[in-house]
Structures are given as C-alpha cells and as structure tokens.
Simulated scan of single mutants.
Amino acid sequence: MLKIVSADFVKGATKASQYPGEGLPEFAFFGRSNVGKSSLINMLVNRKTLVKTGSRPGMTRVINFFRINQTFMLADLPGYGYAQRSAKENEDFDRMLAEYASNRSDLRTLFFLMDLRRVPGETEKNTIEYFERLGLEVVIVGTKADKLSNNEIAKSVRAIAAYCNRTPDMVPVSSADKKTGRDVILRMIEDRCRS
C-alpha cells in the first residue's frame, strides 16, 4: 500500500509556461465547485491543511501543484459551475483547463469528482468526453459518501455509472471526513505510477 511520507505545495499556475517541470507522473482532480476536491486531496495525503479548503465555492482560481513522496504530482484544478464568475472569467477558466489538459504530457489520470447527492448532467458528460478525446484516462469518484446511506450510495453510483458509460465498480466512492476510498484511490495512483 502506498505510504505518504511527504507532501509539498510546489506552485500555483494559470498557464503552461508556469507549470512545474518536475517530469513526474501527475494526477489531476477536477469537478464542480464545492464537490470536495481540496478535502479529498488533503485526505489522500493525510494532511489537514496542505490544500486550502474554502467555506465558499469557487475559491480555487489557479491550478495548484503538489509534490508527493518526491515521486509523483497532484494537481488541484479549479471547480466549474460557480455561478458568480463573470462570462470573461468562465472563458479564461475554460482556456486554462483546455491548455492544461491538452499540453501536460506528465498527466496520467484525471479524477473527475461528482457529489453522490447530485444527478450528473450534460456538462459532466461533455466534459468527460472532451478529456477522453484528448486521450486522457478519466476516473469518476463519487464524493460525500458520509451524507448518504449505503443503499443511497449504491443507487447513486449505479446512476452515475450508467449515465457516464461506466460500470458501477469503476466509480470509487469517497468521504474526506471518514477517509472512505483513500486506499482505493491511492492504489490506483500507485498502479499508474508503475505503468
């Protein structure tokens, strides 16, 4: 099992010329504003405050890069769907994301986080298809599992999987509060670091 011994913030970036040139396997976390990306990363690396979590959605405006164990990188991408962004901010956001996803050769996997309490829609489906057209592996992770019963989780996972053309076993569930899903996601990262 992958043991986290070090986790360091490297830098925030808004364009390719600012990305860190570590040459390490990289794993990005993406999803709707307030889906729990920062909390999930903190849970994975066993730190409470490595990634700043905001009480308000839409806090992350840059791509934040973290070096883990000196062997791989995690990238925390800004959340989408934040209503209080202007049209110009949304345009800049889309451009930043497209540049990152299409130019980052070290990027192995994009973990696409979805709140298990929400029904995915066209935005989610189109975004996944966009990333996959770029040749990226997209792993859907259901978040906030602690807010639902086991039956509700199973039902939600089946719905997300069916809508996003997956099987339920391909959608790990997580809860940052209860550390649910930590081992599964770290094992995925470890396997992809080796391949």
Rank of each mutant, 00 (worst) to 15 (best):
E99H: 00
M73L: 14
D92A: 11
F93M: 14
G121M: 01
R104W: 02
S174W: 03
T143Q: 07
L24E: 12
R47C: 09
A161L: 10
E26G: 06
L24A: 12
S6D: 13
T167K: 14
N46I: 00
S156P: 08
R158S: 09
F131M: 13
L40R: 02
A13P: 09
I41R: 01
I4N: 02
I128W: 05
T71V: 01
V139P: 04
M1P: 14
R118Q: 14
K178P: 02
Q18W: 02
K144D: 06
N90K: 15
P172F: 03
V51W: 03
F93C: 03
I140M: 11
G23E: 11
G12A: 10
R32L: 10
F30R: 03
T109M: 09
E132Y: 02
K144I: 06
A159T: 07
F66Q: 04
A159R: 13
D191R: 13
A75Q: 01
L77M: 05
Q18H: 13
V173T: 10
G181I: 11
K178I: 02
G23F: 09
N90R: 15
S149Q: 09
P168M: 12
G54M: 11
L97Y: 05
L50Y: 04
A162S: 12
Q84L: 04
N64V: 00
R158W: 00
E132M: 09
R32H: 11
R85I: 08
D106Q: 15
G36I: 12
G31C: 10
R85M: 13
M1A: 15
T71I: 01
V35N: 12
I189T: 08
C193T: 13
K37I: 08
N34P: 14
K147M: 06
V139N: 02
E89N: 09
A75E: 04
L113H: 00
T143P: 03
L116C: 09
R56H: 13
L148D: 06
A28I: 06
A154N: 12
R104M: 07
T167N: 13
Y100E: 06
E137Q: 09
N126Y: 11
Q70Y: 01
L40E: 05
L107Q: 11
F30V: 07
K3Y: 05
M1V: 00
P120L: 06
E124G: 01
N126D: 14
L40C: 08
G54V: 08
Y130P: 00
D94R: 15
G21M: 10
L77C: 01
R117N: 10
G54A: 15
P120H: 09
V119D: 14
N34S: 15
E124T: 06
M96S: 12
A101L: 15
D191T: 13
K178T: 11
A162D: 08
N42M: 08
K147Q: 13
R118L: 15
P25F: 10
V5F: 14
G21N: 14
S86Q: 05
P172W: 05
R108W: 00
S86W: 07
R158V: 07
V139Q: 13
L50C: 11
V171P: 05
I153P: 01
Y82S: 03
V173C: 12
A98Q: 12
R194M: 13
N151M: 09
A28N: 07
N42Q: 12
